[in-house]
Amino acid sequence: MSLVGQSAQGQGDVLVFTVRHWVKALNVTCTATNVATNVVATATKQLQVLAGPANVSITGTDLVAASTSYTYSCHAYCQPSCTYAWKLDGGAWFGGQGNTISMTPWETYNPISLTCKATNSVSGMFVSATQKINVTSGPSEVQIKGPDTVGIAETHRFTCTAECLPSCRYLSSVDNQTVRGNVVEMRVDHPLKSVSLKCEAQNTASGKTATAFKTIKIRGPDSNASPRLEETSTTLLLAFMIYAVLKQVLWMDL
């Protein structure tokens, strides 16, 4: 018994061998010799060599928008070939799509798990790969956190928050004076009835925006000043310090 191109051990009519690297096929030869007549006969058998699946991976974006179609491809090393099946989150496996599928994600704050299973078409052995897909969402639940009433000469901090995936960038304003960021420190040094705060949150991926407003009442002995005095004095007498702190990204192109 012999095996072309491979190391093998033959004893009588039994051959033992291990394939060290992939080849398309192997030829096993058996030679029989009549010990009395020295007549020789030979038979050859071709063996198909299987490999994989190995190196399974998914190709496609990991950040998507809800209600938009996206295409993903699965790749694996298989000999002679692989079949593919897909699964979303904890759902059932589905096939018939080959190694490429199209999916339309739903809006969620949790990542979607996309799994591809590659199966060797002959051996039945399989390996899977999973990709986490984040869906852009928000901004929602935009709010300005801080006291509703402040006193004259007191310093207070107001913070704008929003539910956003990926992160939001913020634009804050105090009585129409605008800064970048979601944190405002404010101090009123003169009598006013109220101060208006505004915060705009923008999703850095989708570009969607949402706005929150907050009216801060001013507490003090002269807080009941006449409307005329307030109207003429707001611009000149409102003294505040604003410090903008971006959460994760700068507000660009403003």
Rank of each mutant, 00 (worst) to 15 (best):
M103G: 07
K132A: 15
V183I: 14
E230N: 09
V249K: 03
A239D: 13
C116N: 01
W251N: 08
I144K: 05
V122M: 06
Y170H: 07
V49Q: 07
P105F: 14
V179Y: 08
T159P: 00
T119N: 08
G96C: 07
S121Y: 00
S113K: 13
I112S: 04
T119E: 05
A212N: 02
S7A: 10
N27S: 15
G52F: 07
R180E: 15
R20P: 13
R219C: 06
S173T: 06
V135P: 03
C116S: 05
V127C: 04
D148Q: 14
L192I: 11
E154D: 07
L237N: 10
G138A: 14
T159Y: 04
G90L: 08
L47I: 13
L3R: 03
S67T: 15
I216T: 01
K117V: 04
G181K: 01
L197N: 02
T149V: 15
T235G: 09
R20T: 14
V150P: 00
W93I: 09
T18S: 08
W22F: 11
T209A: 06
C30Q: 02
Q6G: 04
A65W: 10
L15M: 11
C199F: 03
A212C: 00
N224L: 08
S196G: 06
L229Q: 08
D253Y: 07
M252L: 11
A85I: 00
D62A: 09
P166L: 11
A92Q: 11
T211S: 08
A210R: 03
Q248A: 14
Q248N: 12
F240C: 09
V179L: 08
G96A: 03
G151L: 05
T211I: 05
G10M: 07
Q11I: 15
S223F: 00
F213C: 05
N134I: 03
E185R: 15
P147N: 13
T18Q: 08
H21T: 13
G124H: 14
K24P: 01
V135M: 09
T161W: 00
G96S: 07
C74K: 06
Q46R: 15
V142P: 02
E154Y: 00
E230D: 09
N27E: 14
K217E: 10
W93S: 01
N55K: 01
I144Q: 09
Q9T: 12
S137D: 07
L192K: 02
W93N: 10
L165N: 12
E141T: 06
N224H: 15
T234R: 15
N182P: 01
V135I: 10
T44F: 03
V39W: 02
G52S: 04
V4R: 09
P80I: 04
T104S: 04
R187D: 08
S67F: 14
M1S: 06
V14F: 10
S167R: 12
S81Q: 12
